[in-house]
Amino acid sequence: MSEQATARAIIREAGTSYAAQAGFTLTDKPSQLYRLLVLSVLLSTRIKAEIAVSAARELGAFPTARRMREATWQQRVDALGRGHYVRYDESTATALGNGADLLLDKYGGDLRKLRKKAGGDVRRIKELLREVPNLGPVGIDIFCREAQAVWPELRPYFDKKALSGAEKAGLPKDAGRLAELVDAADYARFSAALVRLTLEKGLLEEIKAPA
């Protein structure tokens, strides 16, 4: 199987984004970008991805920074609890409230204004994202991996986990060379799929198994 064919198979079988798993389609709109940010905050913690995704789905009841700020702390805790995000529910509920305050105060709740402030500089986007409470390096990588679908200046974004998955699949461990294997429109799904190869044992064997 050629590298291009391998890449296509990986996308086809494992290219579901975290956003899609959490029940929303990412577009360059304030609400969807905010939901991706919340999802990235939840995934920053040492917790199973499926639990973070489930909690993000529940927090979809507060799809904007303003709605998140207007929700009570207990409402946020309850939503996290319904998603079984119970170990860090109280601290995360506080962080989400503080993060909503920050976004509203600095960007009017619109992450596109953060993007504009960064002026197309990926490093600056990441620096500004670091100001969001509880959004660690892992979460920033997740946000950028998925946001590259709607923010072209992030492309190609293949972080260490994605590159590790590429190496596991026998593909180039180089972002530039990986980008040559698929269309730019598929970078986000390709990156998500490569991360899944890193995290899920046996997935690569399933993809490569004869039909």
Rank of each mutant, 00 (worst) to 15 (best):
L104M: 10
G120S: 10
G99V: 00
D101L: 03
A79T: 12
L96M: 07
A79Q: 04
P133W: 06
Y88D: 08
G108S: 13
P137F: 04
D121H: 06
Y107M: 07
D121C: 02
L114T: 13
R123Y: 05
S91G: 14
K116V: 12
N134T: 03
V122P: 02
G81T: 12
R82D: 15
V138A: 15
G109C: 05
K117Y: 04
T92G: 03
H84Q: 15
Y107G: 11
V86N: 14
T94Y: 06
V138C: 02
Y107A: 09
L104D: 15
G99E: 06
D121E: 09
K116M: 03
I140A: 08
R123V: 09
L103I: 06
I142E: 12
I140F: 02
K116E: 15
D105N: 14
I125S: 06
K117D: 12
I142M: 10
P137R: 11
G120N: 01
P133N: 10
D141T: 09
E131H: 07
D105K: 07
E127N: 11
L129D: 14
G81P: 00
R115L: 11
R87F: 02
R130Y: 01
E90G: 05
K113V: 10
V138M: 03
D101P: 02
L128H: 08
L104F: 05
G120Y: 07
D121Q: 11
G108M: 06
L128Y: 11
A95F: 01
V138T: 12
Y85S: 10
L102I: 09
V132Q: 10
A93P: 08
R87M: 08
S91F: 00
V122D: 13
L102A: 15
K106T: 15
E90W: 01
A118V: 09
G83I: 08
A93R: 02
A93T: 02
N98L: 13
E90V: 05
R87N: 09
L114G: 10
G119Y: 03
L135G: 14
L104K: 14
A93V: 01
D121G: 00
Y88M: 06
A93K: 04
L129W: 07
N134E: 13
T92C: 01
K106S: 14
K106Y: 09
R123C: 01
Y107V: 02
N98K: 14
K113P: 03
H84P: 01
R87W: 13
P137H: 11
H84E: 15
R130Q: 14
Y85C: 12
A79V: 02
D89G: 06
A95L: 01
N98D: 14
K126W: 02
K106R: 15
D101A: 05
K117L: 06
D110I: 00
P133D: 11
L128G: 11
I125F: 01
L80F: 03
A118Y: 10
L80K: 11
K113G: 01
Y107S: 13
V132F: 04
L129T: 12
D101I: 01
V86S: 12
S91V: 07
D105G: 10
A93N: 09
Y107L: 05
R82K: 15
K116P: 00
L111S: 08
R130L: 09
L114A: 07
A100E: 13
I142G: 05
Y107F: 07
D110S: 07
T92W: 00
G109E: 15
G108R: 08
D141H: 05
S91I: 02
D105M: 04
